[in-house]
Structures are given as C-alpha cells and as structure tokens.
Simulated scan of single mutants.
Amino acid sequence: MATWLHGEVVENHAWNNELFSLRVRTEPFEFTAGQFVRLGLEHDGRRLQRAYSLVNAPHTELLDFLVNRVHDGEFSPRLHALQPGSVIQVSQPASGFFTLAEVPAGDSLWLMATGTGIGPYFSMLETPEPWQRFARINLVYAVRYEADLAYLPLIQSFQQKYPQQFRFQPIVSREPCAGALQGRIPALIAEGQLQRALDCPLDASAQVMLCGNPEMIRDARALLADMGLPKNLRRKPGNVTVEHYW
C-alpha cells in the first residue's frame, strides 16, 4: 500500500504561461530514473492526486516535475497556483517500468517524446547508465510551439559534455523554428527525415523509447514494427519500449 510523504514546494518555475516545473523537497527516498510518483493535495476533505514522472536524477536533493496546466482540469491548475512554501504530498514507493533496466542492449538509444513526456528522459540522462551502455544517444523532443521546449539549458549541457555521443533534435509542429523539424514523429520517421537529421540509422541495432501522446505512440509503434523494430516485452525482448503519458 502506498504511503505519503510531506513535501514543501521550493520553486514553481514557469517555462511559459501553461508549462511549469514544480520543485519539491521531501525526506530522501530511492527510485529508479524513469519512474513516477503521485502528487497529492488536500481539497474539501479529500486528497486529489495524479501521477507524474520524476525529472530529477535519483541522487539529487530536490524532486522535479514537469507539468502542463489543463485549464478545465481538477488538479493541474492547483499545482500551477502553488508557491514556495506550499505543502504537497508525494506518494511512496515510486512506481513504473519505463526504465533503462528494461531496455535491451543496442548501438543507439533513441529517446522520443511529445510534450511533458520528455521528463523521464532527463532523469535517465543525468545518470551514468545510458552513456556507458550506448555509443549514440538521440533525444527527440516534439512540441507545438518553440516556447514549449523546456530544459534547453540542461540539453545544452549534455551536448557540451558528450559532443560525439549525444544528438538533440527538436520538432515544432505549429510554427517555423530554427534547427527544428516540422511535423509528427511517425511521419518524419517514415519519410526518413528524422534519421537524416540525426545522421543515424533507425534499424535493428537501435533501441527506441517512446513517451507521450498515445496517438504518437500507437502510430510510431506500428511504423517501427513494420521497419523490423518490434515492441520490447520481458518475455520477448524487442526494440521499442513505451510509456503512455496520459
């Protein structure tokens, strides 16, 4: 049964009017990069709660959550309104199997996400494991507008630290953006644009992680299966590991 830790909001960082990072301090606990917890708020005598992936690495002091405000939602507008010093609850233990331990060996690791689905990848990339296991790491980050691209300073730090090993490709669907591709991830794969932009083959030597919009995951999974990259299962290892983010 889940237990709840008392947390204190340390920072509510706005990336734009709707997208924000909530930084929370709790007593230390263990988790694996890629896992999630539930955040809880007391309201009218009951606990409102929702699952969010941990963006921070397991060894860091503050918990970090990337959240998009849904105006007609019950929970995210309340998170959006929290200020430093606000009380929030964090569930224990952390859960989920969207971790690198579930990913078989490969030459390249493709981390593909839409929107806030990028969050667990940052947690993974701040650990030694991906850099030790894969010769090439490609981070693919799809959003609607350029202003939706969060954590760019962190991404730039990976580029500087691992210039030969790490590549970043933003995708912005609703406006032109320098350095970004335009369109949907599945279409860009089907046309070969994504592979050309990253100068890396997307074949049986690759391991792919998909996180975010269920439609993107559904279409990308089907396309990758047709390309000879089946879904990764414990009973039958493959090339594509998925996490439905909403």
Score class of each variant (00 low, 15 high):
residue 5 L to D: 09
residue 6 H to F: 04
residue 11 E to P: 01
residue 18 E to A: 14
residue 20 F to G: 11
residue 21 S to C: 02
residue 22 L to H: 06
residue 29 F to A: 07
residue 29 F to M: 09
residue 31 F to K: 07
residue 34 G to W: 02
residue 35 Q to A: 07
residue 35 Q to K: 05
residue 36 F to Q: 06
residue 38 R to L: 05
residue 38 R to C: 05
residue 38 R to D: 08
residue 38 R to Q: 11
residue 38 R to N: 11
residue 39 L to A: 09
residue 42 E to G: 07
residue 46 R to K: 11
residue 47 R to D: 00
residue 52 Y to G: 04
residue 52 Y to W: 03
residue 53 S to K: 02
residue 60 T to N: 11
residue 62 L to N: 06
residue 63 L to R: 10
residue 65 F to D: 06
residue 69 R to Y: 03
residue 70 V to Y: 13
residue 70 V to Q: 15
residue 71 H to D: 15
residue 73 G to Q: 12
residue 76 S to T: 13
residue 76 S to L: 07
residue 77 P to D: 12
residue 80 H to R: 08
residue 82 L to K: 03
residue 82 L to V: 01
residue 82 L to C: 05
residue 85 G to M: 07
residue 92 Q to T: 13
residue 94 A to P: 09
residue 97 F to L: 13
residue 101 A to Q: 15
residue 103 V to F: 09
residue 104 P to M: 10
residue 105 A to P: 01
residue 108 S to W: 04
residue 112 M to D: 09
residue 114 T to M: 09
residue 117 G to K: 09
residue 124 M to K: 07
residue 127 T to F: 11
residue 128 P to T: 04
residue 131 W to N: 05
residue 132 Q to A: 13
residue 141 Y to R: 09
residue 142 A to R: 05
residue 146 E to P: 10
residue 147 A to D: 12
residue 148 D to C: 11
residue 149 L to W: 06
residue 151 Y to N: 05
residue 152 L to K: 10
residue 152 L to Y: 02
residue 160 Q to K: 10
residue 162 Y to I: 07
residue 163 P to T: 06
residue 166 F to T: 03
residue 167 R to Y: 00
residue 169 Q to F: 06
residue 171 I to P: 03
residue 175 E to S: 08
residue 176 P to D: 13
residue 178 A to R: 14
residue 179 G to I: 05
residue 180 A to E: 12
residue 182 Q to A: 12
residue 186 P to Y: 05
residue 187 A to T: 07
residue 189 I to L: 15
residue 190 A to D: 14
residue 191 E to K: 09
residue 192 G to F: 00
residue 192 G to L: 03
residue 193 Q to C: 10
residue 195 Q to G: 00
residue 195 Q to I: 00
residue 198 L to F: 07
residue 199 D to P: 01
residue 201 P to G: 02
residue 201 P to Y: 02
residue 202 L to W: 01
residue 204 A to W: 04
residue 204 A to M: 09
residue 206 A to Y: 01
residue 207 Q to W: 04
residue 208 V to P: 11
residue 208 V to I: 11
residue 211 C to H: 04
residue 215 E to N: 08
residue 216 M to G: 08
residue 218 R to D: 10
residue 222 A to H: 02
residue 226 D to Y: 00
residue 233 L to S: 09
residue 238 G to W: 03
residue 238 G to D: 01
residue 241 T to A: 14
residue 243 E to R: 12
residue 244 H to R: 14
residue 244 H to Y: 15
